[in-house]
Design a protein around this nucleic acid. Sequence first.
DNA 1: CGCACCCTTGAGGGGACTCAAAAGAAGTGG
DNA 2: CCACTTCTTTTGAGTCCCCTCAAGGGTGCG
Lengths: 242, 242
Amino acid sequence: MASDRRDIHNSDVPVLCRSCEARHRGMCGVLDPEQLVELARTTHKARHQPGTELIGDSTEIHSYANVMRGVVKLSKVLEDGRQQLVGLQFAPDFLGRLFGQESSVTAEAASSVDLCVVPKSTLEQLVEKNPALEHKLMQQTLRELDEARTWMVTLGRKTALEKVASFLHLIATHTDPEADVVVGGARFELPLSRLDIADFLGLTIETVSRQMTKLRQMGVIQVTNNRTVDVPDLDRLQTLCG
Amino acid sequence: MASDRRDIHNSDVPVLCRSCEARHRGMCGVLDPEQLVELARTTHKARHQPGTELIGDSTEIHSYANVMRGVVKLSKVLEDGRQQLVGLQFAPDFLGRLFGQESSVTAEAASSVDLCVVPKSTLEQLVEKNPALEHKLMQQTLRELDEARTWMVTLGRKTALEKVASFLHLIATHTDPEADVVVGGARFELPLSRLDIADFLGLTIETVSRQMTKLRQMGVIQVTNNRTVDVPDLDRLQTLCG
DNA sequence: CGCACCCTTGAGGGGACTCAAAAGAAGTGG
DNA sequence: CCACTTCTTTTGAGTCCCCTCAAGGGTGCG
């Protein structure tokens, strides 16, 4: 492809960026090499363990980030501790509330996560200079809004079984399929614990577990080590999503 | 105010736009008079009765619109007919999925609604020429995303009483308060029927009704004609939102 | 008045929650 | 390698909240 050829000859591309997914599919894809160099001067990679809080709700924002690897969960909590996940972000998603003074959600590493961290001011200056960048971020924001609204239907109108099926379907279609996929099926690692899944679905951990058992007994899924899920027939799973 | 004075002298402002809220608080606020004239050449006002479908789910998009008056409800339905409202839009909100080929939601007039309709191509050309316009629309999209996520907590984690209280609080704080507001209280017309409220909250119509009755018995609200709600103490209402 | 529509109220049932305990899985140290 | 702890997940029993089904008001309009 043309862009690949250009990359080969373009030794200006910062080393950090060369193997980064965000440069192709993510926001950095709209930057020219010069802007990429400028951006890379102020960014740094950061690896986080599962459970690490990346951004706190109602805390001031000093930086944005790109998810380079792993899964980040976005959540909100009520005063009495009830928690609800409001989004999941995969590579190469952009992380942070653009133009916001403070975050409206808590961001936490669900798995081991690699981030490319950008200072707030750097990115905002770049956005001002490059309308294409804001356009790219707008596209992601619109996609996130679509996903949030799709999920509202799940939260408000689906049964527990349908919720769990919907979650499995979401993960199956959002994580890169492993090499040994069977046609029409999928095998993947759950990036979330049962508690996280419950918080994502508006259920309790016990109910999630019971529905997983039911799906297992129905032959829709196979589970090994509580985390690896095998879906022989994705269409079958989809019919259970309501 | 300075902007008012400028308006008076600026007879270039199209007649249609002079009394429009969207020109000040909405997206047209970032346009200069020349652009406003250009835009106004292709727009037209449209009044719709309650219940009119403005945009169908999965239908092709030919135009966008600004809500000038009234309330628009956004909804999604499952194949078996279960419905979920995923958003409410008030003046001067922008209506439509920017850059999308087809809508991902159904938009319906909840009350009598006045729209300012803009052809898709006109607006998209204007967005390309004017980064400030995309920025403004980005701001609204980000706000809608925040609202959607806040509502996900309500859908997933709140009890029926908390849901109804949250809905009333939302309406109380999103519709322009009437002249005769008491300090700390509010009085407003519900823009939605009980069925719509139920679809918004992920409840049944009967449950909504029962919780309204309970709130009435608790003295938190007074209801007249099933549509006019009086909240003597908004703080009291808020404590019930969970 | 009579009809239509929307809302409220009541009785009963079921699905998800709560509380409790057992079974696995993962890590620690002898 | 195995006892031990700890954490996660599963399973079970019982309860409650919300849904379902059904009937009874209100309100507006012809």
